[in-house]
Amino acid sequence: MSALLELTGVSKRFGGIDAVRGVDLRVERGEIIGLIGPNGAGKTTLVNLITGVHRATAGTVRFEGADVTAQRPHEAARRGLARTFQIVQPFPQMTVLENVMAGSLFAGASATPAIAREDAMQHLERVGLGAQAHRPAAILTLPSRKRLELAKSLAMKPRLLLLDEVNAGLNTSEIDGALELIRSIAADGVTIILIEHLMKVVLSLSQRVLVLHQGALIADGPPRAVVDDPRVVEAYLGARFAARFAQHPTEASRA
């Protein structure tokens, strides 16, 4: 059987910037993958290439065997490719419930707004926003908006869920809740690619970690091995510090 998602030589150039360079990647069904990399490494751009927001300058994106390199975002959504936005994108004047209904109606399986309403309510309960259902999305706090993004993408009945820093800005107890939630989503059979800066989250959830640096994939493997990889340490800390840490590898992995 073909991989769920397969990228071959995917590159994206913005003017003079190579945001993503020749990325090769296979994602199997049921995986939870952490995608890390310093600021500006190209993580969000990679998500945009997978979900049809940007079109790759070179290479191909395959999803469930089909070539989807040229797909439009709404086609990606209907195929089961859902993503959350790093910078949250609610429909501000709609209620929280209506925001989630949109996902259910247009990408999920709901045939009518009435069915979507029921469905959306369940997703809101799941992310802990049930009590806010009828309030306008614009008045939610940032952590609640992150959860709204998550509920909206769950309502899209995804096969592959790309979470772009859903936990940024959450406090410790909120993060514990989020970890729980992501685990339960994975348990439902959704494949997850998780973009995170918080190593605690990446290490506790991921079965496999990818590291992007200046647009290129420089590491791909089990979390521990990746974190101890000298090239990864170098990408994060710079060559001089990496050389110093190389003498104390255990300390480097804690960084």
């Binding site: 979900t51 927001v53 439009r72 975002p73 709404h74 959504a77 209907r78 993503r83 936005f85 994108q89 609610p90 429909f91 501000p92 004047q93 709609m94 949109a102 996902g103 247009f106 990408a107 909206k152 899209m156």
Partner: peptide, 15 residues
């Protein structure tokens, strides 16, 4: 209504 409020987000949820 989704388009009126945020066209990019509308496209991303499948509109």
């Amino acid at each position: 209504r989704c388009i009126a409020q945020n066209e990019d987000a509308a496209e991303m949820v499948g509109v």
